[in-house]
Amino acid sequence: MLKQFEDLTRTVRNLHTVTDLLKSMGEKTENVFDIEDNFRGSDQMKVCVERVKAIPEARAMMESRYLGPEIDLEALSNLPPGTLGHTYATVMKALGFDPNFYRRRDVKTDADWVTMRLRKTHDIVHLITGFGPTGGELGVLAIHAVQIGYPMGVLLQVASMGLALKRQPEKLDYVTQQSARGMGMAIQIKPLIAQRWEAGWDKPVRQWREELNITNPVIDEPYSLKNRLPSLDLDW
Results as ranks from 00 to 15, higher is better:
L127K: 01
N100W: 11
V52S: 04
S179W: 07
Y174S: 11
T134C: 11
Q177A: 14
E70D: 15
L156Y: 01
L2H: 12
L84N: 01
Y223K: 08
R228F: 09
V205R: 01
A60N: 10
L138T: 11
R209C: 12
V218E: 13
L95W: 06
D123T: 02
K120E: 03
Q147G: 03
P191Q: 04
T129N: 02
V91C: 04
L79V: 01
G132V: 00
P80V: 02
T11Y: 13
L21D: 02
L234D: 02
M161V: 14
E36K: 01
G162C: 12
R181L: 12
Q177L: 10
T176Q: 13
P133T: 13
D123K: 06
R40T: 12
I193W: 01
E70H: 13
V107S: 00
T87D: 12
G41D: 11
M92D: 03
G85M: 06
N31V: 03
E63D: 11
P222S: 11
T115G: 13
H122I: 03
R181E: 12
A186L: 04
P191H: 04
R181P: 07
D220M: 01
N100L: 10
V205A: 07
M185D: 09
L138P: 02
D37Q: 07
Y102E: 02
G139E: 09
E210Y: 12
D43W: 08
G96N: 04
D72G: 00
L15D: 08
E74R: 03
I124Q: 07
D112W: 03
F33T: 01
R105P: 07
R51C: 04
V47Y: 07
L79Y: 11
H126L: 06
Y88F: 13
S64R: 15
G200N: 06
G82Q: 05
A60G: 09
E30I: 11
A142S: 14
N14D: 08
R119Y: 04
K23P: 01
M61H: 05
K46D: 13
K23T: 14
A164Y: 00
Q178M: 11
N213S: 11
T115K: 11
R103M: 13
L118G: 04
S224C: 09
Y150D: 09
S77T: 13
T87N: 08
F97L: 13
Q207W: 02
V107H: 03
G139Q: 11
K108S: 12
E198K: 07
G136R: 03
L67W: 05
